[in-house]
């Protein structure tokens, strides 16, 4: 049975696209057939992060509007043959998406893929509502800072009211992916802690991705970090999150404070006091 996952956040720049690509690659490496769909019509990025920007011919809008067949628009990843990308259009806007058309595309994708990862645009407007509309599960990407947490809370409210599942009175699983986390700064009170975020959002934790330069490096070379640098802490955290998404029980190790020098410890203590 296929599973439609929306990766969403409300706020921009928190790591939705990076997380969509990384989770997609992790799930594909585990053997599932995965497609990652870019819903950010007009500001497409997923093709760049997945290194497929020079292979885009048709896109989501073409398929939604019936100008192209789905197999024409799907781009198969060169590194993993069971990972595909359905890119967004860069020249159109979000109004080009219709509920009927998106529903048809999702139904067609369900026939050939195990996981359909919908990379939502930022905001709460049409692009975001279309991305979440047909979801079975939601991954809420949040940074440990107040504005991101509040926007995520807003999105959770929408997931509970504006999705097909919610309207049918069914449960839509929502899980938190905390990205750009820095345990040291959280310990010093400069950043919200995991507990702070969980207390406010009150949804289960899917994973914690530490702030890491490896993530940006992977994005810049157009390769999901789980493929580019599988040994990195961030890649392992995404792999764990993907396994939890598949229903496995993987113990979650709360990131410890990185080893720090004497001076840092000294200042850290001062700030905490």
């Amino acid at each position: 049975m296929s599973n439609v996952v929306v990766v969403t956040s409300g706020k921009g720049g928190v790591g939705k696209t990076t997380s969509s690509a990384s989770l997609g690659a992790s799930l594909a490496r585990a053997g599932s057939k995965v497609v990652v769909v870019d819903f950010d019509v007009g500001l497409r990025n997923l093709d760049l992060v997945m290194g497929a920007e020079r292979r885009v011919v048709f896109d989501l809008v073409n398929v939604v509007q019936g100008d192209a067949k789905l197999p024409q628009a799907l781009i198969r990843d060169k590194r993993l043959e069971n990972l595909s990308l359905l890119p967004a259009s860069q020249t159109r806007d979000k109004d080009a998406l219709t509920e009927e058309g998106v529903g048809r595309v999702i139904d067609e994708l369900r026939e050939s893929f195990d996981w359909i990862i919908c990379d939502s645009p930022a905001g709460i407007e049409k692009g975001a509502t279309m991305a979440m509309r047909f979801a079975d599960t939601a991954v809420v990407v949040t940074n440990p800072e107040v504005s991101s947490v509040r926007d995520s809370d807003r999105i959770i409210g929408m997931l509970d009211s504006k999705t097909c599942r919610a309207e049918r009175g069914e449960r839509l699983e929502k899980q938190l992916l905390l990205t750009r986390y820095d345990a040291g700064r959280a310990a010093r009170g400069e950043m919200m802690t995991v507990e702070d975020v969980l207390e406010i959002l009150a949804i289960p934790l899917l994973g914690i991705i530490n702030e890491s330069p490896d993530v940006l490096t992977a994005s810049n070379v157009g390769c999901p970090i789980t493929l580019h640098n599988p040994a990195s802490a961030a890649a392992r955290a995404y792999d764990d999150a993907a396994r939890r998404l598949m229903g496995e029980t993987v113990p979650l190790t709360t990131p410890r404070q990185e080893k720090q020098g004497f001076m840092a410890r000294l200042f850290g203590r001062k700030a905490a006091a």
Partner: peptide
């Protein structure tokens, strides 16, 4: 009996 979310 559920959280009242931001914006609601």
């Amino acid at each position: 009996e559920r959280p009242v979310r931001s914006g609601q």
